[in-house]
């Protein structure tokens, strides 16, 4: 079911020091489906002005705050612009815009408030290395410990939600622990959620932008502190 009018679907792309070609490629793919696109530039050092690309909205943080903060800014802006559906999408080219309709479908059919993409639901839908799979499996257990939700994929940047869910999600973790905050919001507000299989394509570039083991430890501590100071 390909919707003709995707104006009310807002795709939020947090951007930090992204390679211009990759970013342009990501945006072009999304434009083909005529989504409304919000690019939130989290104070990138390099120039990512996108003249002539015709992206719909472009926002900029004056100082670097982290991906969680950029997403929240994008979400609030989309809500201001009367978005009906919101999609979060990574800038590094690891997601495929072709997966978005599948994520939106359960929400449009009012079967779910929020859908989370999972690279592990279908075999062969990812080319994650062994170490990355191990990391994601550990993250999955940590998410379970913190939220009681056991998901097949813990840190996938591709999600879709309806307006009501987006209003409930108030990301306070500025850095990467926000992925778990989505689960907190689901749990706390009893949102209906669904995991949808989606492809994740790792390139050398997206790997270089991805999470290291060291970073994962930091995420864990952010979560502990989040719980402590809630």
């Amino acid at each position: 079911m390909l919707s003709q009018n995707n104006d009310n679907v807002f795709v939020i792309i947090p951007v930090f020091n992204e390679k211009k070609e990759v970013l342009v490629q990501t945006i072009r793919e999304l434009q083909k489906a005529s989504y409304s696109i919000i690019v939130v530039n989290d104070a990138s050092a390099n120039d990512i002005s996108l003249p002539g690309i015709g992206i719909t909205y472009s926002l900029r943080h004056e100082v670097n705050l982290g991906q969680g903060a950029a997403l929240q800014t994008g979400i609030e802006f989309a809500l201001q612009k009367k978005a009906t559906y919101l999609v979060t999408f990574d800038a590094d080219g690891q997601h495929s815009s072709a997966d978005i309709p599948a994520l939106l479908l359960p929400i449009q059919n009012n079967e779910a408030d929020i859908t989370l993409a999972s690279r592990f639901l279908k075999p062969g839908h990812h080319n994650a290395s062994f170490s990355r799979q191990l990391l994601l499996k550990t993250a999955r257990w940590i998410n379970y410990l913190f939220t009681g939700l056991y998901l097949s994929d813990a840190h996938n940047g591709l999600r879709a939600m309806n307006r009501a869910a987006a209003e409930k999600v108030a990301l306070k973790e500025n850095r990467m622990a926000h992925a778990t905050e989505f689960l907190f919001a689901i749990k706390k507000n009893n949102l209906r959620f669904k995991e949808i299989p989606a492809t994740v394509t790792y390139t050398i570039y997206s790997k270089s932008k991805g999470q290291s083991v060291f970073n994962s430890i930091r995420i864990f501590f952010d979560l502990v502190l989040h719980k402590l100071f809630e």
Binding site: T56, Y57, L59, R60, E62, V63, L65, E76
Partner: peptide, 18 residues
């Protein structure tokens, strides 16, 4: 920072401006 970002959002005129 968020407040500033939201206030200074650039809206592209080349595509639709809704």
């Amino acid at each position: 920072v968020r407040k500033n970002a939201l206030e200074q959002a650039e809206i592209s005129k080349t595509i639709r401006d809704d």
